[in-house]
């Protein structure tokens, strides 16, 4: 055997079993890539080398017919069972999904109910408080304070002139933008910018899709939906703000939020409509409860 140039590939020896390069320091030189030839091995020895060994040994062909048949049976059964399992699992997953959806809807309905109850109970509390406080000067002063502060913090429903801003995701096809692009959808940050702009423009009360904003309200994205006070919103988004009818809209359009939305509407093709209203009524925020904060004694 003349020492030829070393090749990286493992050469098949003509007579012997086609063993992988042995790591034992034998007479044959180790292939250069012997220790890292996983892919070589897979590609060059795809057939079990033992077939060659058995063939070289000249083993009988007709042995073990029954185990062969059994293995074939098992393989076939595995295919069938797996396919059956998968098709059977699909409707189960679907049922589970609808079940979950209906559970979410039930929970939301219950939440709505509870919120309505909170509102009515709050009204009752206010009435009872007024009755209990009596008619002394001090009580009237307190009552006046409460009446001033409640609309400000969002504890009671308010009504007055204002504007309604309606926005929605870009309609696919406008401005040649792909519909799936997430940048063409209204995000939580867009609504935050708008609401901040409205506050800046002098809004006295703001509600998003009928959810009154208070100092405790969070507007944020959760998955695909935008939530206000942990209630997910449905498109289109309607932001209503109470304020001076003469200046609110003009100031809002000039604010950072207004500019932000101007750009979104022009460059992204989002729906963006502002309308003045003579009278809008915003509901109370029923979630206004302080659980940990107490009035600091001065």
């Amino acid at each position: 055997m003349s020492p030829g140039p070393r090749v990286a590939r493992v050469e098949r020896s003509p007579d012997g079993p086609d063993r992988l390069p042995s790591t034992s320091a034998g007479s044959t030189p180790r292939a250069l890539d012997a220790s890292m030839d996983l892919l070589n091995q897979i590609i060059q020895h795809p057939v079990d080398p033992d077939y060659a060994v058995a063939a070289a040994r000249g083993g009988g062909r007709a042995r073990l017919r029954w185990p062969l048949a059994l293995v074939a049976l098992v393989i076939g059964a595995m295919f069938a069972v797996s396919a059956v399992e998968t098709t059977r699992a699909a409707p189960a997953a679907e049922t589970e999904r609808t079940e979950l959806i209906s559970r979410v809807q039930r929970a939301e309905a219950q939440q709505d109910e509870l919120r309505a109850r909170v509102t009515s109970l709050s009204a009752e509390i206010a009435k009872l408080r007024a009755a209990a406080a009596g008619t002394s000067d001090e009580a009237e002063l307190l009552e006046r304070q409460i009446n001033t502060l409640d609309p400000m913090v969002g504890n009671v429903a308010v009504t007055g002139p204002g504007i309604t801003v309606t926005v929605d995701d870009a309609v696919p096809g406008t401005l040649d933008v792909p519909s799936t692009d997430q940048r063409n959808q209204v995000l939580d940050i867009d609504l935050q910018a708008m609401v901040n702009g409205l506050w800046l423009a002098g809004a006295e009360a703001v509600a998003v899709n009928g959810h009154r904003l208070s100092s405790l309200t969070a507007i944020r994205g959760a998955g695909d939906a935008i939530t206000v006070d942990f209630r997910s919103l449905a498109r289109p988004y309607r932001v209503q703000a109470l304020g001076d009818p003469k200046t609110l809209q003009a100031h809002y359009v000039e604010s950072a939020g207004g500019l932000w939305w101007n750009e979104l509407a022009q460059n992204r093709g989002m729906r963006y409509e502002i309308s003045s209203e003579e009278q809008i009524t915003l509901p109370a925020d029923p979630g206004l409860v302080l659980r940990h904060a107490r009035k600091a004694e001065s």
Partner: peptide, 18 residues
Amino acid sequence: IPVLGLLAGIALGLVLEP
């Protein structure tokens, strides 16, 4: 034999649905 076995296995799996 293997082909027959395969077919029989598939049939068995579909029929018995274990």
